[in-house]
Amino acid sequence: MTARTGKFLATVLLGLAVSTSSVAAEPVTPKLTDKLSQLLQKEMRAVQGGMASIHSAMVMGQHESVAENAQQIHDSFILQQELTEQDRKDLMSAVPKGFIKLDKEFHKLAASLAEAGRDKDTKKQQKLFNKMTGNCIQCHGKYVSDRFPGVKSSGD
């Protein structure tokens, strides 16, 4: 699998998808294979840890740590290393296009956040971190509502 395909798939799973619509979609979790579900949970734990580290680093002015953690979220190598071609096909049949679009957006935001960390721009870091958090909320409210029934996307 190419690095680009791996990053794309990591992005797809990571967002479990941020959608531009506020209407709840059918949860994708039941459509995932056991392996994909486990990989997604592993990826989400890594993102959760990265987001917590970024928050702490931002409020302490540790720009290098913001950059490193945001870059790791952007790169998301777990899926690249562990998805087979069949896993990729299974994933693509389980998630809607809106999921993919918002997952790409999430990773693009992470790359921008890494850059803001390298630039030592705290204001921009906060703005991007907030957008990433919003994407997480949208994803969980729209595509993982079976696991997170208390999460409502803005506009829901």
Rank of each mutant, 00 (worst) to 15 (best):
A110K: 09
V95G: 01
A114E: 15
D119S: 10
L83Y: 02
Q126D: 09
G98T: 01
G98V: 00
G117L: 07
L102G: 03
E105D: 11
A94K: 00
L109G: 06
K97G: 04
S93G: 04
S93R: 01
G98Y: 01
S93V: 03
S93K: 02
P96A: 03
Q126K: 15
R118S: 08
A116L: 12
Q81D: 14
E115Y: 12
T122M: 12
L83S: 01
H107W: 06
A114C: 12
A94P: 03
D119G: 02
H107M: 09
K97E: 12
L91F: 06
K124D: 05
A111D: 10
A94S: 10
E85H: 13
Q80N: 13
Q81N: 14
A111Q: 11
K123L: 11
R118D: 11
T122E: 14
Q81E: 15
I100G: 00
A111L: 13
E82Y: 06
Q80E: 11
F99G: 01
K104G: 11
M92H: 03
A111C: 07
Q125E: 15
K120S: 09
L91G: 08
Q126I: 08
F99W: 02
D121T: 10
D90H: 06
E82S: 12
T122A: 14
L91M: 13
A111V: 08
L83I: 15
F106S: 01
K101A: 11
K104A: 09
I100Q: 05
K108Y: 13
M92A: 05
M92V: 04
E105C: 03
S93W: 01
P96S: 05
M92K: 04
